[in-house]
Simulated scan of single mutants.
Amino acid sequence: MEAGRAFVPHAQAVAGVLHDAAQELAALREVAGGRLRFGAFPTADAAPVPHALAAFSSRHPRVRVHREEGLTPAILDGLATGHLDLAIVSTTGRARLDAYDLHHLLDESLYVAVPAGHPLAGHPGPVPLDRFAEADWISGSPRPEGTLLDAALRRGFRPRVSHVVAEWTAKQGYVAAGLGVALVPAPAAESVRPDISLLRVLDEGAPARAVYGATARGRSPFPAVLAFLAALREAAARMPA
């Protein structure tokens, strides 16, 4: 009897290990198939998302992937309604993120895109953003509030938005033509065209734009979501500093 009681903790430990192993095997079976639905904001689609998606698809080829592109508020709506399993979002746009579980991916650096012939083109070090206080700006909105140009407001000047251009590739064309300068987040820096130059914005204590994978609060992410988040972190870690 005494020997039996002494054996109980060992049996419970073994049972616990077997239970954990069964859960891991079940998770592997789940990620081997099924569906992943995610949304991402546009500049995340420029670098980390395609790299992560390529890695994820090679590891889990049987998972059906549905991807949507949209601004952070729109893809958060898709997450809230259950239309999406994961939303890749940024802190730009002043979207309310406190209602979601956030999985940190990266803190972005900012760059100023200038024409190749600009006096500062090729400048080796970071430049203060207020160096461009008198410049014409190209932005996706006529107002800087809730956009990347919030960084200019924090530096004490209100940028003059001369051209409202939503698409990043089109913004590059406007910059290359000498019509203004534009702010570029780090994920888009990989896809810059050769006739413009990127200048690193000097970090003067302003908060970096953070990028998160958001999931619905109260719902445990299923294995495919966790696997894709891991691929996103790997892609973010490989991005140039």
Rank of each mutant, 00 (worst) to 15 (best):
P144M: 06
E145F: 09
G146M: 05
T147I: 08
T147M: 10
L148Y: 10
L148P: 07
L149Q: 14
D150M: 14
A151M: 08
A152T: 14
A152D: 05
A152E: 02
A152Q: 06
A152L: 03
R154G: 09
R158V: 08
P159A: 05
R160C: 05
R160P: 01
R160D: 10
V161Q: 02
V161S: 05
H163F: 12
H163R: 13
A166K: 15
E167H: 13
E167L: 05
W168A: 01
W168P: 00
A170D: 13
A170E: 15
A170M: 10
K171G: 01
Q172A: 11
Q172P: 15
G173L: 05
V175I: 11
V175E: 02
V175H: 01
A176E: 08
A176L: 10
A177V: 06
L179Y: 13
V181D: 10
V181N: 13
V181G: 14
A182E: 07
A182K: 14
L183D: 14
P185Q: 11
A186I: 02
A186K: 15
A189C: 07
A189M: 08
A189Q: 10
E190D: 06
E190K: 08
S191I: 12
V192G: 00
R193F: 06
P194M: 03
I196F: 01
L198R: 08
L198M: 11
L199T: 06
L199K: 09
R200W: 07
V201I: 04
V201G: 03
L202N: 08
L202I: 01
E204V: 09
E204A: 14
G205Y: 03
G205E: 06
P207Y: 02
A208G: 13
A208R: 15
R209C: 11
R209I: 13
R209S: 12
A210Y: 01
A210M: 10
A210S: 15
A210W: 00
A214R: 02
A214P: 05
T215E: 02
A216W: 09
A216G: 04
A216Y: 09
R217F: 04
R217T: 14
R217G: 15
G218S: 11
P221G: 01
P221Y: 01
P221D: 01
P223W: 07
P223T: 04
A224V: 00
A224R: 00
A224T: 00
A227W: 12
F228E: 02
L229F: 11
A231M: 07
A231I: 04
L232N: 07
R233L: 03
R233P: 08
E234I: 00
A235V: 02
A237F: 00
R238L: 09
M239A: 14
